[in-house]
């Protein structure tokens, strides 16, 4: 059962990703990306990480992608890549290197790592919100606090970057 769900979800995730990359319309790309994120969230559930699955859907597929869509709409940038490719060999080389990277990744996935698969009983409890939060607020307390400061900086930075010059505004007005 789990295997079937895995393969189905995996295929959906891959197709969604490909569609995201290939779609000429940025809005479509964003929607495909949301689909990809949701299918990955399903995989998280299979990996016994329900908390992160929830975070994935709410934060990633929800907040972040909404931000993306908002910006696309705001700028009117949904159109496909404009003009011609300035560096002719960029695309073939990129695809070639991508294939090499994929081969290497596959090699790593099946030959490079030597990890025993845990039994279900052992791995049962690692993803519950209680476990995660107890680790987060004890072992990773300091990084957690730093992340909060990072987010604050990001907020301030965003405000500064998008704020229009006051003098500039007055001129326009």
């Amino acid at each position: 059962m789990a295997t079937v769900i895995f393969y189905l979800t995996a295929i959906v995730a891959i197709l969604a990703a490909l569609a995201m990359v290939l779609s000429p319309n940025a809005v479509h790309s964003a929607l495909f990306l949301i689909l990809n994120f949701c299918s990955v969230a399903v995989l998280y559930l299979l990996l016994r990480a329900p908390f992160l699955a929830a975070v994935q859907v709410t934060v990633y597929a929800g907040a972040i992608m909404v931000l993306f869509l908002f910006v696309i709409m705001l700028l009117g940038a949904e159109k496909a890549d404009l003009g011609s490719e300035p560096v002719g060999w960029q695309k073939p080389v990129a695809i070639l290197l991508g294939i090499v990277l994929l081969v290497e990744g596959g090699f790593v996935a099946y030959r490079g790592i030597r990890l025993p698969d845990m039994t279900a009983a052992q791995a049962n409890d690692i993803g519950s919100p209680i476990t995660i939060s107890s680790v987060l607020f004890s072992k990773y307390l300091l990084p957690f606090e730093i992340i909060s400061i990072l987010l604050l900086i990001a907020i301030v930075g965003t405000v500064v970057l998008t704020r229009r010059d006051r003098a500039h505004l007055r001129e326009e007005a």
């Binding site: 995996a10 995730a13 990359v21 990955v40 960029q90 990129a94 991508g98 990277l101 996935a109």
Partner: peptide
């Protein structure tokens, strides 16, 4: 991990193209 690698590669190619 293989699935992860595939998605990663698609992302890379997307960034580059």
């Amino acid at each position: 991990v293989l699935l992860s690698a595939i998605l990663f590669t698609i992302g890379v190619v997307g960034v580059l193209t």
